[in-house]
Design a protein around this nucleic acid. Sequence first.
DNA 1: TCTGGGGTCCTAGGACCC
DNA 2: TCTGGGGTCCTAGGACCC
Length: 423
Amino acid sequence: MATFALVDCNNFYASCERLFRPNLKNQPVVVLSNNDGCVIARSQEAKAVGIAMGAPLFKIRTLVEEHGVAVCSSNYALYGDISERVMTMLGSNAPSHEVYSIDECFLDLDNLGVPDLTAWCSSLRQRTYQWTGIPVSIGIGGTKTLAKLANRLAKKSAKAGGVIDLAHHPEWIDTALRKTPIGDVWGVGRRWSQMLEERGMVTAHDFAHAQDGWIRQKMGVVGLRTAHELRGYICHALEDQPQPKQTTCCSRSFGATITDKSQVHDAVMQFAERAAEKVRSADQVAGAMQIFIRTDPFNANAPQKSLSGSANFPQPTSDARAITGTATRILERIWRAGYAWKKAGILLLDLSAKGSAPPSLFDAIASPDDGLMTAMDQINAKYGRGSVKLGLAGKDRDWSMRRENLSPSFTTKWADLVSVRVG
DNA sequence: TCTGGGGTCCTAGGACCC
DNA sequence: TCTGGGGTCCTAGGACCC
């Protein structure tokens, strides 16, 4: 039998914001999505005053003022950096591990030679806090889904001390399943939990005991795997080798809607450059691309439109010139005037490792590698993103993102280092 | 006035082939 | 006159995750 642990950072983005701003300790803190749109992270205190996950800022203004909630724009450079510290710390303690998301990591606890896993995890939890300043909770189970479920209970339970081990206490599993609402099971989202609740299955326990044939028919093999995992059968192995990405996307909502074609083009060019950069940094090339633009679905009064178009590259590429050029041609092809555009994006598809594709007959002619992209990447790595770019985007940006409450880049920008005056 | 961004996997259905 | 069945590949859309 395998033993999985899931280490999950508590209120991760809110905890990051607090790290360098001790005055926020024990205060309600929320972090907003891009454009300062809606709440994507809340400290415990913010949850306690009734701020919902995903709530748009304009709907919680009153709560914010009443309770003095600290409101932060999201600062992904900071969160990414702190995440790396936490993951490095965890990886050095459990060599076999899988970084599952920016704030979660699965550990393989077998073969660690540890007699008491609960004690070991408690001390890991403590050290993580001491070394990184980030509080975590740990759930242990025989499958990833059970480890997730244990983690959720560890977060909620006051007496658990942040760690719950279902793997070595099989007698707790039944109660744990009964205590878990179906919608809180990993792999059961909004649609499925509604469907299951309508049929009287309201807890993980109900679902785990449903009939395989029925689950397969209603939820496919994906749902069936979740049910099996709840019963203790492993369907999701630990993936300690990160898989190369198959697609990369760069998309944004605009700060305000735009109708002007050249502005939409500007935005698409910037996203295309950024997407190309991402692909290059993973040493990949793209075989195809797609761009899309769409209006604001929340504005019931405006005519709605969603346009997209795609193209294949003659040879897989990561060259920003090829990618922006193709993006321009696609936009030209799909453009329709008369709409208020709110969001645009580009997807690079069919990614493969650079150099893995069989060379084409025309390679030498079609893709001269003149080193320009490499040079640009090096300069941007040294002097900061966007220091050099293709001369494509104009200066008037009506569409730029709103970030009115951005915290300093404490760990990634020299100018934002915290200074401490002594004496 | 103001509602995120970046991914994965699976399935159904159509085109096409023999 | 008879009007099949099995396979692959691709795409769009829907579910999920953080």
